[in-house]
Design a protein around this nucleic acid. Sequence first.
DNA 1: ACCGGTGCTGAGACCCCGCTGAGCCGCTGA
DNA 2: TCAGCGGCTCAGCGGGGTCTCAGCACCGGT
Lengths: 224, 224
Amino acid sequence: MRILVVEDERLLAGALKRGLEAEGYAVDLAPDGRDGLWRAREQSYDAIVLDIMLPGMNGFQVCATLRREAIWTPILMLTAKDGEYDEAEALDTGADDYLSKPFSYVVLLAHLRALLRRGAGQRPAVIELDDLRLDPASRAVHRGDDPVNLTAREFGLLEYLMRHPGTVVSKTDLLEHVWDVGFDGDPNLVEVYIGYLRRKIDIPFDRHSIETVRGAGYRLTGSA
Amino acid sequence: MRILVVEDERLLAGALKRGLEAEGYAVDLAPDGRDGLWRAREQSYDAIVLDIMLPGMNGFQVCATLRREAIWTPILMLTAKDGEYDEAEALDTGADDYLSKPFSYVVLLAHLRALLRRGAGQRPAVIELDDLRLDPASRAVHRGDDPVNLTAREFGLLEYLMRHPGTVVSKTDLLEHVWDVGFDGDPNLVEVYIGYLRRKIDIPFDRHSIETVRGAGYRLTGSA
DNA sequence: ACCGGTGCTGAGACCCCGCTGAGCCGCTGA
DNA sequence: TCAGCGGCTCAGCGGGGTCTCAGCACCGGT
């Protein structure tokens, strides 16, 4: 865990460095806003402790600049005054948390821990098979760079196949999982939709990733 | 944006509910810890405002229980005393932020907004998608340089969509998060409001950023 | 080669989904 | 009190999606 402390008061900065290092963190110091901004850009920190009152460039500016550059390192702001709107402004410029001076060391630690705990958000898994990509979240399918437009039923069918790559899936399996359970319809329905799929993801690209296994079902080929 | 307020003091709870609803949030109230825990488990909230002093089960316990069950809804704790260790304990049991009573409504709002911003995975204060800008703080929306006038409901809808860009959001999702709890209304309502939105942010500018994904929901296109 | 079985495809009907305009209700401010 | 606005419901319409059906192609076994 690497932490950047941007603080111009020597005494406070030193105390923070020693304290945090005692907790096992690796700490970098920056004496002013410009240096802090530079370090935050160059290095990858797990969190930044950022004072507002700084020579040269104040904390708000540093924070806003970083966010504008799409750098999302968690930022803990140290507000000198405890005016309400100061705090609100800190959060609105993109800080993740703030502390009003004077603060106790225990509280700072707790805030930092909370900040570090909030890790990166998990992204829904995109399923890939060779150059075929399916994103369940955005319901988007791509063959290479070309987008493929699928209807709801076609998408459901392809998703099920892609979740069982390389294995033979029977038509009754598909009817049960892609269509409603206990669907007593004609297996021909599956054949029809397999046809639709092929005409959208295989034939235009001259592939044949959907194999038919006579008497058994279908198999989607390719490797993740 | 759906928010759960766990607070036993009737007056405060009511005031919060009314205030937040005026801002366009959908608000649920829970009068004690047990009820709050139950609701937080059952429903999907975008944030929880959690008092510590509660009958039956206190806020620490509720918070710790939720985290133990891997429910990561952002939690804003209301600490009655302003002892340092209270605050530290709040953060250490898994709360994301805290406020010491008494607090002002402005500050609460700022904290909540910051929390909601993080919940979606660390976004800047102003949400941008291509030339569409939405500022939660000032409740202003712009397409390019042109201001767009939205009603509260339209704004809530657009904000939720912009916090989930590129992903398909179902109508029931929207009903649950943009409208009130347990809203068992007609999904047509969503369609109507999508229509309103399109007539304000898309059609006049000859775009179509709100795509309908037949059988699944809607997707807001564009890149930050 | 013949023939039954299995899978593929084009055409078409039906129906549900989503969009829209009209209108009602409640609130608010003039 | 009334006009205006926002929120919501309702009914109708249009079109795209789902499904059925029949005919044809292909494959395997005798």
